[in-house]
Computed example of a mutant assay.
Amino acid sequence: MSRPQVPHRPFFHFGNPFQMISLKGSQMTPNLSALLNTFEETLAGRLRKLNPKDNNDVLSLSWMKLAMESLCGTRNDIKTLIAEIDLPVSAWDEKWIDVYLDISVKLLDICIVFSSEIARLNQGHLFLQFVLHNLNSTSSKQFIRARSSVDDWKNHIASKNPRFENCSTIWDKLVESLDLPKVKNSAKGKLLMRAMYGVKVLTVSVCSVFATAFSGSASKLLDLNVAETYMWAQAFNDLQSNVNGEIRNVLSSGRVTVLKELEAVDGIVKHLYPMIQDDVALAEEEAFKNSTSDLERKAQNLSQGLDLLTKEVDGFFQILLTGCKALLSKLRSGGAVSDQMMMGNVEGQVVR
């Protein structure tokens, strides 16, 4: 896997501000140790599976779908772990509740932004359909209409999604949320915070790649430092190095689009566009037909990839929302935290 020519300074260049959650002196039982090891080994496996085997996998919709599946899996893993360590919500420290809800709310916001960008790209597919319809028409005005649709598609793809600009504060706070609260005299609490840290590192890292892919800018791409004391640290570092390195190579090449399926469509459009400036010459008819067929196939691949990714993002959104509602329901029944405070956190912050 290729690396950037100039070493990129880590996002937290002053060192890792995230203190490793020590379990020493917390009377960690063999059962709790086994649960923690299983959780971290599972997370390491997910990270290794996500590590692309080929440069072409990076920034592809199929890889992004796999990444979102990993996020869904880790959220389910943490839910299972909470049940297995037998730590009822009534025993949670308010700081732990804040951590769980705060990260969930911010991720709900981010999911909405991602969904809006996927929908915008899918709108661009309509212009491609117009192009193909006109190129397959027998009308003498087919090229004029096709050129107009190509121009509409190019302008649409080149436009920016204002939601990315509007969620910068949410994004910054999402990164800040990696700094976990201190836990005293609770082996189960420290285990929970350690596990949450792993989930959040994967989540923030994947979201940074998604934001980079959709915006075409490396400003949101993060380099996180993870202590080697975590069983999944090496798998994460390998993944981050490979993916971030390839992304920076792609962006440094000056490409207008960075999503692989979108780039494939753009390449065919650029090849086809000069042919439809005027009537296609007889000598070019075969090349014209081949390019049109190629555009139809690649446009379909893009559309199908976006549809599959939409389902995964929606699924992740529902997991987050269901988790928040379940926690709030338990808090109401147990009276551990006021409904007004919790409902203000969750229902008042999600971007609409």
Rank of each mutant, 00 (worst) to 15 (best):
H13F: 02
P4Y: 00
N155D: 12
V204G: 08
M28G: 00
T38R: 11
L251Y: 09
R194M: 01
V226P: 06
A195D: 02
K325G: 00
F143A: 03
I247T: 09
W96K: 08
P274H: 11
V113Q: 15
R3T: 13
A119L: 15
V204R: 07
S186L: 01
Q304T: 13
D86L: 08
P162K: 10
L23E: 04
L302I: 04
L121F: 08
D77Q: 14
T74P: 01
I82Y: 03
E261L: 15
V206H: 12
A211N: 11
K220N: 14
R145K: 13
S291A: 15
A34L: 08
F39C: 06
L32K: 02
L36M: 09
A233P: 04
L59E: 00
D86H: 11
F316P: 05
Q240N: 12
A283Y: 07
D294N: 13
K154H: 09
S70D: 13
K184T: 08
W232S: 12
W153A: 08
V250Y: 07
R147Y: 12
K154Q: 12
K260P: 03
K260D: 05
N244D: 14
Y100Q: 12
D109W: 05
L32R: 04
E117W: 07
S186W: 02
V105I: 14
Q5D: 02
P4L: 01
V199C: 15
T292N: 11
A218N: 12
